[in-house]
């Protein structure tokens, strides 16, 4: 998979390499930074994101943790509270279910409960999503769970460039930042600037401009939406594709401005559709003045109300695919024409 962007003249890295480069920069420039996670040392991480960083920084800064997600997450919270800048990798985002106590009750709330006396500058990385044949316990998209918790920030980079810039911004942020990385994106290549740069944690990005339909997408769905938009352009439908990038906080201004322009909104996300990010974006539009600009009912495309199945055909069937997006946007655009 390659990103549909004009040649920027930048060198290309994979999404995983871009994340590794961000961590390398952080480790090199800030002695407080430590990486923690299962098999991130000599193994290089289950998805080879940390790779060989242990060779450069040693086991004290690239720390293998035992298979103790709750305890490991809590150690990261305590370390962040007392002067370190941990980057904690969950091997699969699904395993964060074992650590919810420390993330939700502790990391997210300590600052508030203590009346602002502390901050928890913690970064957590969550390899997420389906498409790898790993079935129901290794394929979930749980980002909306975390988006529901005040005190956390939640981002979903869709490109190597954003993966690096959002991670560096997360490290620079005083509060806990959860980064959801889609596993199928790790090998995707794209242009990545050299050195340190920061992508804001609260800004969506318009990936393709259009006038007929606003398509708000997250993570890997940004690429599927862009592919769909290209096909739709051939049919005379101009879709504007917004990469939401941050699901907490939501970039209200970018989404509403686009909907005011196009009058139509389709949300596309891989997580279970019910009670998901699409509901929040839809409600945000419905509660705003942009509602008056709507020319068609809002459409949400999300995951089925089902665990992720093992069989590859079934696995594809339970999350939105490019033809689904094309059909939905086409219907939405034509219905109102």
């Amino acid at each position: 998979m390659n990103i549909a962007v004009v040649d920027s003249g930048l060198r290309e890295l994979s999404y995983a390499e871009a994340i590794r480069e961000a961590m390398d920069i952080a480790l090199a420039t800030d002695p407080r930074v430590v990486l923690m996670g299962e098999d991130i040392g000599v193994y290089g991480g289950a998805f080879q994101v940390t790779g060989d960083l242990i060779d450069k920084y040693g086991p004290d800064r690239v720390m293998d943790t035992p298979i103790s997600e709750l305890g490991g997450a809590g150690v990261a919270v305590g370390a962040a509270l007392t002067g370190l800048r941990p980057i904690f990798e969950f091997q699969f985002s699904d395993f964060a279910t074992l650590a919810m106590e420390q993330i939700v009750n502790q990391a997210a709330k300590l600052r508030y409960m203590l009346g602002g006396a502390v901050s928890v500058p913690l970064v957590m990385r969550f390899p997420a999503g389906s498409g790898t044949g790993a079935a129901a316990q290794h394929s979930q998209s749980l980002e909306a769970w975390f988006g529901h918790v005040p005190g956390l920030k939640v981002v979903q980079p869709s490109t190597p460039q954003d993966a690096k810039g959002l991670l560096l911004a997360a490290l620079d942020d005083p509060d806990p930042v959860m980064i959801f990385e889609h596993k199928l994106l790790y090998k995707m290549r794209g242009p990545v600037p050299e050195g340190a740069y920061w992508v804001p944690l609260d800004k969506a990005e318009v990936r393709r401009t259009g006038t007929d339909v606003t398509v708000v997408a997250t993570g890997i769905m940004v690429h599927k939406a862009l592919e769909a938009a290209e096909v739709l352009a051939g049919e005379g439908i101009a879709a504007e594709v917004i990469d939401l990038r941050s699901i907490r906080p939501l970039d209200r201004d970018t989404v509403l401005a686009s909907v005011r322009k196009t009058g139509r909104l389709t949300c596309v996300y891989e997580a279970v559709k019910t009670l998901g990010i699409g509901a929040e974006v839809s409600a945000m539009v419905a509660e705003s003045d942009a509602f008056d600009y709507l020319d068609a009912p809002i459409v949400r495309l999300g995951g089925a109300d089902s665990p992720i199945p093992y069989n590859p055909d079934l696995e594809r069937a339970v999350v939105p695919q490019v033809p689904d997006i094309i059909a939905a946007v086409r219907d939405q655009a034509r219905g109102a024409l």
Binding site: A79, Q106, M113
Partner: peptide, 24 residues
């Protein structure tokens, strides 16, 4: 570093504080 409403909640946090002390 605070009382905790979750039984056992402070145990990993204490280990994290000790990790900071050792590293720093």
């Amino acid at each position: 570093l605070g009382a905790n409403g979750i039984v056992g909640g402070g145990l990993p946090i204490a280990v994290g504080a000790a990790l900071s002390a050792k590293r720093l």
